[in-house]
Design a protein around this nucleic acid. Structure first.
Lengths: 192, 192
DNA sequence: TATAATAGCTAATAAGATTAGCTAAATAAT
DNA sequence: ATTATTTAGCTAATCTTATTAGCTATTATA
C-alpha cells in the first residue's frame, strides 16, 4: 500500500516533529508511524538511516533559514538590513526550536557538511556588510561576532536559559545597537 | 571485587571521556569498562541512569568553569576583569569540548536545573560589571549579551564552524573591544 | 504486454539502557 | 570478636531502537 513518500515529505515531517516533541525525541519508529509506514521502510529513502536523516534535517533547516533571511533583507541596506537579518534569525529559532537543535546538533559531528550548509546564510550576511565599506578582515570579524551572538542568544533564549524578568526584546535591541555602533566606529576612521 | 568508586570519580571519568571521544559517544557500557566494572553497576551510583549521569556532568562542568573563572578574575577590575572572564571561558571550552557539550546539552532538557547550574558563573559576571556603575537593567543586558557571544563563539569555534583563515584570536579581541566600547558609551552618559 | 525498478512489508539481529535478584565485601552494632 | 546491615559489585533477563535481509506488490518503463 504505497503511501507515496519521498525525501522532502519525510524531512518536512521530521522537522515538524522536532519542533513539536524536541529533536532528541525523534525516533525512526515514531516518525514512521506518523507517516503511516513501518520504520525499516525509511531506509528506502535514507539508506544511511537516522544519521543521514539528521544530516538532511540540518541541511533543510539551514536552507529554510537562508530563504527566510534572504526575503527579509531584500530591499534593505546597512543597519536596516542587519537588523532584519538578526530579527529573522531570532524569530526563526523561536518558531523552530527543534529544527534549530538539529541544525546545531549535527554541527557537532560533521563539520565539513555543516560548513557547506551555513555558507548560504553567512554569505547573505557578508553581502549585507558590503555596504559599510569595511576591510575584508573587519567584515570577517563582524560576521563572526554576529553569528556568535545570534546563535548564543537564540539558543539560550529558546531553552529558557535567561532567568531574569528583564525584557528579552530589550536585550536583543541593546546588543544589536552595541554591535551596530561598533561597525559605525570602524567606518569613522578609527580602524585599528 | 569492589573497585571503590563514587559519584565524583565516575563523573570525572565521564568528563575525560567526553573530552576525548565526544559527549555523544559516552555510553554506560564503555564508561563502565573504563572504570573496570559492568554497566548495571553504575546504577548503584546513579539510580537515574544515563540521564542522571548527564545531569551531574552538566553541574560538574558549570562548577568547574565557575572555579576557573573566579580564580582568573580575582584581583582584576573593569575591562581587565571582563577580559579575563571571557578568555577563561573560551579557553575552558577549547580544552573541554566534550564537557561543554554536556553543559549545553542538558540545558535542552531541564531548564530549571540548568538555571541553577549557571547561577555561579553568571553572578561572577554581575559582580565584575558592578564596577562600571551601570543601571541594573543595563547590567542584565550586558551580561546576557556577553553570555550569548561567549557561548555562540565558543561553540562554533570548538566545532570548527568558522571556515575562514582569518585569525580567531583577532576576532575574539575585536568582539570584546566592541562590547567593552559599548559599556564605555553607557557610562559616558548616553544611557538610553 | 513484459520487464525492471521502487516502496512498502515482515522477520531477524545487534546494541544499549534498564530492572531484578544474587553475593561478597565493608561497615556498624552488639 | 561476632553478628547484622548496608553497599557495591555481579549475572541474567527485558525493552527499545536501529539496522539488515529478503519478500511482494505496485508503479513505471521498454
Amino acid at each position: 500500500m504505497k503511501v507515496g513518500l519521498n525525501k522532502q515529505k519525510i524531512i518536512e515531517s521530521a522537522a515538524n516533529m522536532a519542533d513539536e516533541k524536541g529533536f532528541a525525541n525523534i525516533t525512526l519508529k515514531v516518525l514512521a508511524t506518523e507517516l503511516g509506514i513501518k520504520s525499516p521502510s525509511l531506509y528506502k529513502h535514507f539508506s544511511g538511516g537516522l544519521d543521514e536523516l539528521n544530516k538532511e534535517l540540518m541541511l533543510y533547516g539551514w536552507h529554510y533559514l537562508d530563504g527566510e533571511i534572504t526575503k527579509a533583507v531584500i530591499g534593505k541596506s546597512k543597519d536596516d538590513a542587519v537588523i532584519a537579518f538578526c530579527y529573522t534569525y531570532r524569530k526563526f529559532v523561536l518558531e523552530h526550536k527543534g529544527l534549530f537543535e538539529a541544525m546545531q546538533w549535527y554541527n557537532m559531528y560533521l563539520s565539513e557538511e555543516h560548513l557547506q550548509a551555513t555558507v548560504g546564510t553567512v554569505s547573505v550576511l557578508f553581502q549585507v556588510l558590503d555596504a559599510y565599506g569595511l576591510t575584508e578582515e573587519q567584515k570577517v570579524h563582524t560576521v563572526r561576532m554576529l553569528r556568535a551572538f545570534l546563535q548564543g542568544f537564540s539558543t539560550i533564549e529558546s531553552h529558557g536559559g535567561y532567568g531574569n524578568p528583564v525584557s528579552l526584546n530589550d536585550t536583543f535591541d541593546f546588543a544589536l545597537k552595541t554591535i551596530l555602533n561598533g561597525i559605525a566606529d570602524l567606518q569613522g576612521g578609527t580602524a585599528q
